Simulated scan of single mutants.
Amino acid sequence: MSPAPALRVGVRVPPCDRADRLVETVRRAERLGFDDVWFPDSQLLWRDVFTTLTAAALGTERIGLGTAVTNLATRHPAVVASAARSVAELAPGRFTLGLGVGNSSVGPVGLRQTTSAAMRDGLGMLRALLDGQEWDFEGKVRSRLRDPRPDVPLHLAASGPKNLRLAGEVADGVILLSGVSPRTLEGATARVREGAEAAGRNADELPLTVSAFCAVTDDIEAEARRIKPICASIARNGGAPFLALAGIDVDVPAVVEDVYPDLVHAEDWDAAVDLCSAWISDEAATRFAQEFCLFGTPEQITERLDALHAFGVTGVFLQHVGSYDPPTELIEAVGTSVLPRLT
C-alpha cells in the first residue's frame, strides 16, 4: 500500500487590496512552501475574487489556488462556471472551486443563504456546464459552456448536517468549518460519510480540508482574547452545542448590534472584542483557541497538524484574525517555523 499523500497546508488571503499587490503575498507563500492559497468572496467587503485569482494565477507557478468560498446566490451558477473555467485555464491543475451558502456575501445585500436543495441544483448545473453538457434552463432554453473545463474540482464548505451529507453525496471535496476539535471533526466527518455511502461513493477518497484560525505564539492566553468575536459568532449561529462539547458554555444574544458588517468581519475589531467580552470570558476564549484553533508554539502546531493528518484530513487552510489586511505575519511565522518541521 502506498503512503498517504502529505498534508496540504494552505492559507486564507482576503482580497483586501489591489490584485497586483496581493500577488506579492501569494508569491511569498509559494516561496515558503505553502501548498495552497484560498480566497474568500464577498462583493462589498473585498475586491472581486476572480479578478484576484486571475492575477494570482498569472503571478505564480506551483501553488494551488481556490475560492473559500464563493456562492450561488449573488452569482448565478452559469456565471460561476465561466469564471471558474477562465481561472483554471490560467492555472492548469491548480484551481479548486470552493462553494458555500453565502454568509457575508448575501447578508449585506438582504439575500438569504442558499438552501441545501438549491445548493444541490446549483452544483448539478455547475458540474454539467463545466463538463461541456447542455443544461435546460427552467424549461425555456438549452445551453452549454463553450470551452468547458471538466477538471475543475467542486468543493463544498459545510458545517450543518444537511450540507455535510450533501457534500459527501455530490461534491468532489469537503471544506469543514468545524475547526480542529476532534469532537466536532468526528461528528462532521460522520455526516460526510453518511452522504457518500448513500450515493455509493467511497468517503475515504474525498479530500477533506479543515479551516482553522492560527497564531504562532508562546502566549495563547494573550492571543486568544483577539478571537472572542469568532467564538461569539459560532455560538450565535447555532454552534453553541459544539462549543459545549469542548467545555465552552457561552450565552450570546441572538442579535448583536453595533458591529459592521458582522462579528467575523468587523471593521473595528478592537470594539468587537470589547463587545464580545460581555459574553466570552478570557478563560472561554483560551479554551476555544486551544480546542478549535491552531494556537501555540511551532512544535504544538506541528503536532496538531500531524494529528489532523492521522485523523484523515487531507488539507488545512489557516486564517489570521482580520479581514482587511493580508496575513503577512502568519505566512512568515508558519512558513519559517512550522512547514519545515512538517517536511
Rank of each mutant, 00 (worst) to 15 (best):
T25S: 06
E221Q: 11
C16P: 11
P150Q: 15
R127S: 12
E186I: 07
T60H: 07
V216H: 05
V79Y: 12
G59M: 09
E89C: 02
L294Q: 03
S143N: 11
R8S: 11
F288N: 03
R146I: 09
A167K: 02
V273D: 03
D136C: 03
S281G: 12
G173D: 14
S181Y: 14
L177K: 01
P3M: 15
V338I: 09
V264P: 07
G247L: 01
G110I: 04
V9Y: 00
N103M: 02
M1L: 10
V69H: 02
A157N: 04
A91Q: 12
V273K: 04
V252G: 02
L145A: 07
V87E: 12
L166E: 09
R120D: 06
A171L: 09
T115S: 13
F288G: 04
R236D: 02
L65E: 08
F50E: 13
A333N: 12
R183K: 10
A254D: 09
N163F: 15
E138P: 06
A171P: 14
A117V: 13
D268K: 07
R62K: 13
A167V: 08
I248C: 10
P340N: 10
D204Q: 12
A333R: 03
A81T: 12
V338F: 04
N237G: 05
S281A: 10
M119T: 11
V334C: 06
T328D: 14
G110H: 02
V26M: 05
F288H: 04
S86W: 04
L185N: 14
A222H: 10
V259W: 01
Q290V: 05
E221S: 14
P261G: 00
E267Q: 10
R120A: 04
V256C: 01
L156V: 07
K162G: 15
A158E: 00
M1V: 07
V79R: 07
V37M: 11
V321T: 14
K228P: 00
L164G: 11
A232N: 06
C16Q: 13
T25C: 13
V264L: 08
A190W: 10
D325Q: 14
G195C: 03
D136K: 10
E257G: 04
